[in-house]
Each structure stands twice: as structure tokens, then as C-alpha cells.
């Protein structure tokens, strides 16, 4: 297990208590899981994703990550409509381990863009992880 100091928490994205990240890209938001999450889960071997067009509320379960250790639910940091899913992860789910912030899972058009501001910044997230 890596020390927190060895993990990467870029300031360009926001974080949730469930260890997802969200990154604004124009009028859409990309969602993935944090370096901490992938380190805890171990080898990610399968990703279950929603369909393009699915609508979710903030906090809804939108998919699962399957690692050697467990099956983990993914929760949406912000409500919105799925506009893209990262199909490349079906073939190479391990890229989430290798590049957690490069490996977005879904892209949404948020219902309320202001929800982004309610998410934790890197500093608050690391504070939460430190307990």
C-alpha cells in the first residue's frame, strides 16, 4: 500500500468522499476514480458502465469497478446525462491503475454545473484521507 505522499492528487480535478474525481471540460464533466481508490482496490480487471443517454442524480450508482479484491460501486459526483463512456476501458481496465486521472470512465452533461463547486478540492480530499 502506498503512503499518501506517494499518491497523486492533482488540483485540476475535484473529489468525492467515495473517491471519484470530476473534471470540467467545457460544458461536460469527466468522471473517474482517484489514485487512492485504485491503490486500495488493486488490479482493476473489469468496468461496468452505463449507456450513453442515461440520466442520473448526484450520488446515484452509475457502474461498478471490479478488482481482484472486490466489486465496488461507482457513485456520480454530480447529476446529469451520460454523453460518453470510455469504451477503451473494456479492453484495458488496468489503465485505471496506471493512469487514474487519464482514465475517465464516463462523461456527463451536468444538470446543475454549480454542483461542481460543492466537491472537495485536492487539499480537502487529502485532509479527509488523513482522517
Amino acid at each position: 500500500m502506498k503512503e499518501l505522499s506517494e499518491l497523486d492528487f492533482p488540483e485540476t480535478v475535484r473529489y468525492t468522499e467515495d473517491h471519484e474525481w470530476a473534471a470540467v471540460d467545457g460544458d461536460t464533466v469527466r468522471i473517474g476514480v482517484s489514485d487512492y481508490a485504485q491503490d486500495q482496490l488493486g488490479d482493476i480487471v473489469y468496468v461496468e458502465m452505463p449507456e450513453v443517454g442515461d440520466m442520473f442524480e448526484k450520488g446515484d450508482e452509475f457502474g461498478t469497478l471490479e478488482s481482484v479484491k472486490a466489486v465496488s460501486e461507482l457513485y456520480l459526483p454530480m447529476g446529469g446525462e451520460v454523453v460518453a463512456v470510455n469504451d477503451a476501458l473494456l479492453e484495458t481496465p488496468e489503465s485505471i491503475n496506471q493512469e487514474p486521472y487519464g482514465s475517465w470512465i464516463i462523461e456527463i452533461r451536468p444538470t446543475d454545473p454549480a454542483e461542481y463547486e460543492e466537491l472537495m478540492n485536492a487539499e480537502d480530499y487529502v485532509d479527509m484521507l488523513r482522517g
Binding site: 500500500m1 488493486g42 488490479d43 481482484v68 488496468e94
Partner: peptide, 23 residues
């Protein structure tokens, strides 16, 4: 050596090392 540790029975044991459980 970077093991991800967990409790197994009464012991703190490695679940996997940095190569990962699949490797």
C-alpha cells in the same frame, strides 16, 4: 516493498505487492 496489507485470521498479511495480484 509496497505490499497492500490486510488482516487475515490473526495476522497482518500482504494481499499483493506492486506487481499486482493478476501478475
Amino acid at each position: 516493498n509496497g505490499a497492500n496489507m490486510a488482516r487475515f485470521g490473526l495476522y497482518d498479511m500482504p494481499l499483493w505487492y506492486p506487481a499486482g495480484a493478476k501478475a
